[in-house]
């Protein structure tokens, strides 16, 4: 397989991401305000109980989890639904569909440059700061390897969920509504806003059977929970792989069926 055409797309995306300095700056400021907010909020929350651990999480654990979750969010957020929706409305999508590459694959590599840039701009600095500030709380060992594999799987699951939602835009013109619904569901049920261990019982079990927790919760647990046995680590990756395959099958076939009914702008 010729990989050069894919890497060219990646490179173009990286260069493109660097053009939006203002946007990157505002993302960093916005994220900083968010982190200040959750710091004080969870500090106040933990101050209201006598024990230091709640559901096995200390204040420090919770903060590490939430800070890294928000850093992951910025690097995984791809605005794919917006892009697909806009391209569908303007009819521009047809130019990408007729390219000599499958559309889902083309779109992924087009965005991949963004992933790489934001990994270095948002996630890595945040991680280094958290690591130094909470020195000793995060063990760096072979769990980094599990974490990186898990992030990649989470990213792919997130991509194919987005792709599925983006395909719905072929049927409805409501990009904003569809996107906000997806965002809310993913953010809440993936444990990006509140760690899943805090969820009360019936909800917690349900959430563990859904694909969303495989996006943020799985990599973060692999990174933070140092005492986790090897078999459980493999199990987490296995579940992620399972969801990835399901999502590829579902999104792929939904896209194929939907392609037949593209009629935008006479295309």
């Amino acid at each position: 397989m010729n990989t050069r055409k894919y890497l060219t797309l990646t490179r173009a995306g990286m260069i493109e991401a660097l053009q939006f300095k203002g946007a990157i700056f505002s993302i960093i400021i916005g994220n900083l305000v968010y982190l200040i907010m959750i710091y004080f909020l969870w500090k106040a929350i933990f101050a209201s109980v006598d024990t230091t651990t709640v559901n096995g999480m200390t204040f420090e654990d919770t903060m590490i989890y939430l800070v890294l979750a928000s850093a992951l969010f910025y690097f995984m957020e791809m605005y794919l639904v917006w892009e697909m929706g806009r391209d569908i409305q303007s009819g521009k999508i047809i130019l990408d569909i007729i390219k000599p590459m499958k559309y889902p694959i083309f779109k992924f590599f087009q965005l991949s440059g963004n992933f790489i840039m934001f990994f270095f701009i948002t996630f890595l600095p945040t991680f280094i700061v958290v690591y130094i500030v909470t020195y000793g709380a995060i063990h760096l060992d072979y769990n980094i390897l599990f974490f990186l594999v898990s992030v990649l799987l989470g990213l792919l699951i997130n991509y194919f969920i987005d792709f599925f939602i983006g395909t719905i835009c072929l049927y409805t013109e409501s990009i904003w509504g569809i996107n906000i619904m997806k965002e809310v569901i993913v953010l809440l049920l993936s444990g990006a806003t509140i760690p899943i261990v805090f969820f009360p019982e019936p909800l917690k079990t349900v959430v563990y059977y859904l694909p969303f927790q495989a996006i943020y919760n799985s990599p973060l647990r692999l990174l933070i929970d140092y005492s986790m046995p090897f078999s459980e680590r493999i199990e987490i990756l296995g579940i992620q792989l399972f969801w990835l395959i399901i999502m590829i099958l579902v999104s792929g076939s939904f896209w194929k069926i939907s392609l037949k009914r593209i009629t935008i702008n006479g295309g």
Binding site: G177, I178, M181, L188, F198, F199, P200
Partner: peptide
Amino acid sequence: ISTIGMIFTNISGFISFWIIFKNF
């Protein structure tokens, strides 16, 4: 769809409070 999306956002805010106060 937009209205439902809006209400989704609000419900998720509500659920967040509910989860926090289940623990604290």
